[in-house]
């Protein structure tokens, strides 16, 4: 019998190879995919987030853990589709127009994927129109916007306005983040949430969709 605690450990330690092979074996032994996800994989990612919060983990540990999680999810996800279990949500993510910074956005995208979200990454310098179109095409329920420049932050507000005009604002939750962004700014522009770090974005996204 496979020891699924090894799976949790492998995710926490960012060992994608072990995580993947334990998952494969567990599936072969007929263990319910949903059980693997809910009882081992998600708690492992929660532990990663906890370690980040108390300074035991930093970005490199987050990245390898998210990568291990993603490797497992790729095996499990196809088996979940028939079972009435949906992905955590569908996220359209991008850095706003005029801003070419992608590191923060990439980290959040990686963590969201690790958190079980489907992520559509629009890249950098994304116009409000492009966000709107992507939400419509992909039937997304979250829009995540990043900005690193103080001069491009207003693009977040413009995008929220564009979503309103397109009649899509009530369909999506809007998350914002980036070095100059604050909770106050998020509130002012009418975003649904702000997180100052990547693991925070995952829990925030889950909380907002559950609400």
């Amino acid at each position: 019998m496979v020891d699924l605690n090894q799976l949790s450990d492998a995710i926490i330690n960012g060992n994608a190879e072990v995580a993947r092979s334990v998952t494969e074996q567990a599936l072969k032994e007929g263990i319910e995919p949903i059980k693997i996800v809910n009882e081992y994989m998600i708690p492992a990612m929660n532990e990663v987030g906890r370690r980040y919060d108390c300074n035991e983990y930093f970005v490199p540990e987050l990245l390898v853990a998210a990568r291990a999680m993603k490797a497992c999810l790729e095996l499990v996800r196809p088996l979940l589709t028939g079972s009435g279990v949906k992905s955590a949500g569908r996220v359209v993510i991008g850095t706003v127009k005029g801003d070419l910074h992608d590191i923060g956005k990439n980290l959040v995208a990686a963590m969201l994927e690790g958190g079980g979200f489907e992520v559509i990454d629009l890249g950098v310098n994304v116009s409000p129109e492009k966000f709107v179109e992507a939400v419509r095409q992909n039937d997304a329920n979250i829009v995540a916007m990043s900005a690193l420049l103080t001069t491009t932050m207003p693009g977040m507000k413009t995008t929220i306005e564009a979503l309103k005009q397109a009649g899509l604002r009530n369909k999506v939750k809007v998350l914002v983040g980036g070095a100059p962004i604050t909770q106050k700014f998020a509130d002012e522009i009418g975003a649904d949430g702000y997180s100052e770090n990547a693991p925070g974005a995952v829990s925030l996204a889950k909380k907002l969709l559950a609400a």
Binding site: T150, T151, M153, P154, K157, P180, T182, K184, F185, E188, I189
Partner: peptide, 10 residues
């Protein structure tokens, strides 16, 4: 310091 937002501008 860190930028503050005044009237939507940093």
């Amino acid at each position: 310091g860190l930028p503050q937002v005044v009237d939507g501008k940093a």
